[in-house]
Design a protein around this nucleic acid. Structure first.
Lengths: 225, 225
DNA sequence: TACAGTAACGGTACTCAGTTCCACCGCGAA
DNA sequence: TTCGCGGTGGAACTGAGTACCGTTACTGTA
């Protein structure tokens, strides 16, 4: 099966933006290289900028679906994993994520769009946090802070990876989210301090191979003594 | 002294946007009502959107100036007051702040611009927080979280005021910033919360006791094989 | 096979934001 | 007066985004 027009347009856009830069590329040129018409481009993408951004609608839906299964006890894990869905998408993008990162740093319009799209996730997470909180002004502030903190942790770790500062993205993200949840522990759900970690907590470990475990075990035993 | 062309353009823009809406108003119409030319508009404002937004450059400078006087002991107060400078500007705007709030809620392009401009403050506050923190990955995350939290607290309270949900903006903002600083106390300045464990690997693995490790180890080994 | 309905496609022309170039005006200095 | 010179506005241009419309390709139906 041949690539869809949508895929061809995305390919063409990344190629051209990478070669000449964003402002130096017109929508006509993208459409031409993709063998499509201008009209088709704007039917498939609301604006020129949209062609290089992740499918945030789909990611938002996936994240919302993950959140919908949470209980008060697993809220922290759910938030972590919902955020991880977005992170995983970026990780699968490889080369494109790097091109986009360079472009968003260079072109103000793209950076603005990127920043603005984060707002959607913040809202989703805020509404999620509000489920477990009383309807008070203080709680609404807490919910907003937590939602923004989750997105901040995500972006922070993602940017480190995009800059080549780390390979252990998933581990760092788990660390960052754990820290976020610890900071906001007072405001969300039952405090994680008590000695019964939920069974889902294992998913936060981000150990991928047996070697990871061997490496971490000595540290763990020392810390837990 | 007559109003400057800049002031007349701002007045005209608020009037027209308020009367007809943002998309239904062209730059030519704004310039015409202000008795100026199109060229003058674009010399004074980089884009159509900019004409209704606060002078963020000046506010950023003022905030930075306030921050520059801080010591490690007064960092929290400095951050609060620097953020308050921005809040105070909005409070002096009165009617215009309300018009802008309605417009930014209705017009995606304006909301995006508004969100993007917040990023400047986040960066300023992050750099400020980094002054008092060691140069470690964990500290950089803390700095970013704190910077974003300060902006979040500001926006949260400001929006409540814009929606008419409160008159006690300054008091609520002080409360919110106090809460933010309390949450991030572990990461900034002298910690008022004594017994908080430092963020280590231990906080990620929700293991709290040696017994937890013994219990989970068999499962882990099985999973990782 | 022919035909009708429908959905996607692509071309054309339009509006308007933003840029560039240039001519003009007022004003102070030599 | 004449020479700059900063501020101004007009005119033309590029390109994003929209509206309209004719054409093509793919369905199901007779």
């Amino acid at each position: 099966m041949a690539l869809t027009a949508r895929d061809r347009l995305i390919d063409a856009a990344f190629e051209l933006f990478d070669e000449r830069g964003y402002d130096q590329t017109t929508v006509d040129e993208i459409a031409a290289r993709a063998g499509a018409g201008r009209t088709t481009f704007f039917r498939l993408f609301r604006a020129k900028e949209d062609v290089i951004f992740p499918p945030h609608e789909a990611l938002l839906e996936a994240a919302a679906a993950r959140l919908s299964t949470a209980t008060a006890e697993t809220a922290g894990v759910a938030l972590t994993e919902a955020t991880a869905i977005v992170l995983e998408y970026y990780l699968t993008e490889g080369r494109r994520a790097r091109i986009r990162y360079r472009l968003t740093n260079a072109v103000p319009a793209l950076r603005d769009r990127e920043v603005a799209s984060m707002r959607q996730y913040q809202r989703l997470f805020r509404e999620f946090a509000l489920r477990w909180l009383p309807d008070t002004p203080a709680a609404r502030l807490h919910a907003e802070l937590l939602g923004n903190a989750a997105v901040t942790a995500h972006n922070h770790v993602l940017r480190r990876w995009l800059r080549g500062e780390t390979e252990a993205v998933r581990a760092e993200f788990a660390d960052a989210m754990a820290e976020v949840l610890r900071l906001h522990a007072a405001g969300l759900g039952p405090a994680p301090a008590p000695s019964t970690p939920s069974p889902d907590a294992a998913s936060v470990l981000v150990l991928r191979t047996r070697k990871d475990l061997d490496r971490l075990l000595p540290q763990l035993e020392r810390l837990l003594e």
